[in-house]
């Protein structure tokens, strides 16, 4: 079983019994998109909601507005069918609640932007584990579209 690690701002894809893992999601949002029948999936580790002033074009995985289309494209390139795509997301926490008001925290903005761009790209959201004040590890088992999320000191949760 090949485990592929997805770092901040990156996008990776895997097939069959491939496993995609991202560790240390704080305010970032992990996005998994997969085609269960074809057994292909991809994951993005989104850093911020939107690129500004044309920055970030070289790293589309960093921003929700560029990452979602790029992730859709990458999973299609790997053999997925757009019409069969489903998504699950995790992250968007606020680790420093004392410093950032809940209404304008980066994590929540990231979650909102990711959801908006999934909708714009017609990918239905099948599961989520978002916000709160704890970091997360997110694992996508491509074969069956199962996503497991874990925070420190907590039991793994399946979404």
């Amino acid at each position: 079983m090949a485990e592929i690690f997805v770092n901040m701002g990156q996008i990776e894809v895997a097939r069959a019994d491939g496993v995609l893992v991202t560790v240390g999601l704080g305010s970032c949002v992990g996005v998994a998109i997969y085609d269960r029948e074809r057994m292909v999936g991809g994951m993005a580790h989104v850093f911020l909601a939107a690129s500004k002033d044309g920055k970030g074009i070289t790293q589309p995985g960093k921003f929700a507005d560029t990452a979602i289309p790029a992730l859709v494209e990458a999973v299609m390139q790997a053999g997925g069918r757009r019409s069969a795509f489903q998504a699950k997301i995790a992250g968007g926490a606020n680790l420093f609640p004392k410093l950032q008001a809940a209404s304008l925290n980066v994590g929540r903005q990231n979650v909102m932007a990711v959801k908006e761009h999934l909708q714009l790209n017609n990918v239905p959201l099948r599961g989520e584990d978002v916000e709160g004040n704890s970091g997360r590890k997110m694992t996508l088992y491509v074969k069956d579209g199962i996503v497991v999320v874990q925070s420190i000191g907590d039991k793994p949760r399946e979404i």
């Binding site: 704080g26 680790l95 004392k98 980066v106 990231n110």
Partner: peptide
């Protein structure tokens, strides 16, 4: 100051994103 005890990546990326 803000304090978090968590995965290093989660803390670090939250600081950079903020």
């Amino acid at each position: 100051p803000g304090l978090a005890i968590d995965m290093a990546g989660a803390i670090w990326s939250s600081i950079l994103a903020g």
